[in-house]
Amino acid sequence: MTESLVIGNDSEVILHFDLKLEDGSAADSTRVNNKPAKLVMGDGSLTPNFEACLVGLKKGDKKAFTLEANDAFGEPNPNNMHYMDRSRFGADLKIEEGMILAFAQPDGSEIPGIIRSVAGDSVTVDFNHPLAGQTVIFDVEILDVKPGTHAQSEN
């Protein structure tokens, strides 16, 4: 019987996770659509603090980690609040507080912005991560661990 691989620096990991807020409300989950996440440690799909939670776990492990805001998505940055003129939005678009809209970047990529307020012709858009400032619970179940591409055995 082979020893279960332990998650290390460049392991390929398949996992289910639930991201919850302190009050227990769900922020994100791979279980909703029963589609596990697949990542390679260090590929940037998770922040270093989230990755650090996974190191040392192995297939079959289930564990929950509580991350303070600074270790999760950071604190809200006031520089990420933007005030835009209503005319920048389509005339037929009904803008309401709490809406999340995609905004095109100069390089063609899009980033999400949350409408925080609408006052006359001024629209306040928040480009902070929606979970910025929140303590989150990262609840994981490791489904599989494979060695990374750099961990090749000698023949």
Rank of each mutant, 00 (worst) to 15 (best):
G98Y: 06
L101H: 07
V145F: 03
I114G: 01
G148N: 04
V6Q: 11
P147T: 09
E75G: 09
T124H: 11
I7M: 04
D92H: 13
S87R: 15
D28R: 10
N77Y: 02
L21R: 14
V13Y: 04
E51P: 03
D139T: 08
P106Y: 07
G133L: 03
E97K: 15
E3R: 12
L15M: 15
N34V: 05
I7Y: 00
A26Y: 10
L131R: 07
T135C: 03
K38W: 01
Y83W: 12
F50S: 05
N33Q: 14
D126P: 07
V40L: 03
E141Y: 10
P106C: 01
E110Q: 15
K59G: 04
L46G: 02
M84D: 04
V118A: 10
T47L: 10
G74Q: 02
I111L: 14
G98S: 07
T66I: 14
A26N: 12
T66N: 01
G108A: 07
I137A: 10
G133Y: 05
V13S: 03
I7D: 01
G113I: 04
H150Q: 15
E22F: 04
V6R: 10
Y83S: 11
D139H: 08
D121A: 13
E96K: 14
D144Y: 04
G44H: 08
A132T: 11
N128L: 07
A37S: 13
T2R: 11
P106G: 02
G24I: 09
K62G: 08
F138M: 05
V55D: 04
T47A: 14
D71M: 12
G108Y: 08
N49E: 15
L19C: 08
F89P: 00
G24N: 10
N34P: 00
A69C: 13
E51G: 05
D121H: 12
Q105C: 13
S153P: 09
F138V: 09
P147H: 14
V32A: 15
H150C: 05
D121Y: 06
T124Y: 00
E12N: 10
D85T: 06
H16E: 06
A27S: 07
F17K: 01
I7C: 02
G98M: 07
L93W: 07
P78I: 11
E154T: 09
N155Q: 13
V140R: 03
K94V: 14
V136N: 07
L39Y: 02
G148Y: 02
V136D: 00
F127W: 06
E141C: 06
S29W: 04
I95R: 02
D92S: 15
M1G: 15
P78M: 10
T2Q: 12
G60V: 08
R31K: 15
G60L: 12
R116V: 13
V136Y: 06
A91V: 08
H150D: 12
S45P: 02
Q134I: 02
P147V: 09
E96Y: 01
L93A: 13
G98E: 11
S117H: 08
I137Y: 00
T135G: 03
L67N: 09
S4G: 11
S109M: 10
D85M: 06
Y83G: 10
F138D: 06
P147A: 15
L39H: 01
T30W: 04
N33K: 14
